[in-house]
């Protein structure tokens, strides 16, 4: 990120948008708009796949907001994914129709995230990471031990199976597209706000940030709650897309593996990275098929190790640094006559 330097000449200007980022943001908005027409053009199988991609983009963006900006590495976000899916059942059982239930369940998961953060924030670093995992396991076991939610064998969302599959698929797709756009916008707005600047200060130097009056914990908590809402939305969408969930898969730690993989591949701590990582991951998964098997996972794991060790900025981070690119302007840029400050 660019920072103002006291030595910069007085002709330096601080700005956020560049011609490149204006074009890119416009293009992204246009792309999202164009994607809205996909159900009219493509078969339901295609939109079902795209829905999976949107879910991946959501969880990757959420994990990146946590790890890349708030410095909170979690291997327990699947806890909120599962809560989002099972929250839909709870609401549907009380007479709510499924699609609003997906949204409300996500918000409820955000409410659960507040007390969760009180516990989890007592841990830092790697302990926070596994602590979140333990909490996710706790959520899973609560669901497994609740017979009305189907227990360990899972439950189907019967309320939607009555509607025409093509119509239903289109509706799920639109909901996924809308939620993804909203959540990406939320992350974008959050990162551009004062809180976003605080978060970067926290990530780079927590003690220093606190000493200049940054409210470390409340900024982190805000991201934590947003990430919970986003992951829960992803869980609800997964349920709406597949119509059936099992606790072991929706609360599975493989979600964390995917999130880490996507963000590490794309570029931790950049806005664009996780989106690119999600697309790469989606294509790889599509290539190997659903029963990717052990070699596929061995490859993913090895790639995660390799990227972390030798390309820690990820694909996008590496390109962006080399080219000085930022498609979606999250940070500030200082332009000086001799470009001293990069």
């Amino acid at each position: 990120m660019t920072t103002a330097s006291p030595a910069a000449p007085s002709t330096a200007t601080i700005h956020r948008w560049t011609p490149v980022s204006r074009t890119a943001s416009g293009a992204l908005a246009a792309l999202l708009l164009a994607l809205a027409f996909a159900p009219f053009v493509f078969a339901p199988e295609v939109t079902a796949k795209l829905t999976v991609l949107f879910v991946l983009v959501i969880v990757a963006a959420m994990w990146n907001a946590l790890a890349g900006y708030a410095g909170l590495v979690s291997v327990g976000q699947q806890g909120f994914i599962g809560l989002g899916a099972y929250g839909v059942f709870l609401l549907v059982d009380r007479g709510m129709s499924p699609f609003p239930a997906v949204v409300l369940a996500a918000l409820l998961a955000g409410a659960v995230a507040v007390p969760t953060s009180l516990l989890a924030f007592r841990l830092t670093g790697g302990q926070f990471a596994i602590g979140m995992w333990a909490i996710a396991e706790f959520f899973r076991l609560v669901v497994v031990n609740t017979p009305s939610l189907g227990g360990g064998s899972g439950r189907s969302l019967t309320d939607l199976s009555g509607t025409d599959p093509a119509v239903r698929q289109a509706q799920v797709y639109w909901l996924a597209l809308a939620l993804m756009s909203l959540l990406l916008l939320a992350v974008f707005v959050l990162l551009r706000s004062r809180t976003g600047a605080s978060l970067e200060a926290i990530r780079d130097d927590p003690v220093g940030a606190a000493s200049v009056g940054v409210r470390v914990t409340s900024a982190k908590r805000l991201v934590f709650v947003l990430a919970a809402v986003g992951c829960a939305a992803a869980g609800g969408l997964t349920l709406a897309n597949t119509l059936r969930v099992q606790p072991d898969s929706i609360f599975g730690v493989h979600w964390s593996a995917y999130m880490i993989f996507m963000v590490v591949i794309g570029g931790l701590g950049t806005f664009e990275g996780p989106i690119i990582g999600a697309i790469v991951f989606f294509l790889v998964q599509d290539w190997f098929g659903d029963n990717g098997g052990t070699w596929y996972l061995i490859g993913l794991g090895a790639l995660a190790i390799g990227m972390t060790l030798w390309m820690p900025l990820g694909l996008w981070g590496t390109v962006a640094r080399r080219r000085d690119l930022e498609l979606l302007p999250v940070g500030y840029r200082v332009r000086t006559p001799r470009r001293l400050t990069r």
């Binding site: 590495v73 291997v75 880490i260 996972l297 993913l300 794991g301 995660a304 190790i305």
Partner: peptide, 26 residues
Amino acid sequence: ALRTGEMSSMLATFGLAIVLQNVLLE
């Protein structure tokens, strides 16, 4: 990994966990 910070070592050992588990499965 430790040279770049705790986060890198977590990510790398998580990757290793996936590799190990699946190699044993294989």
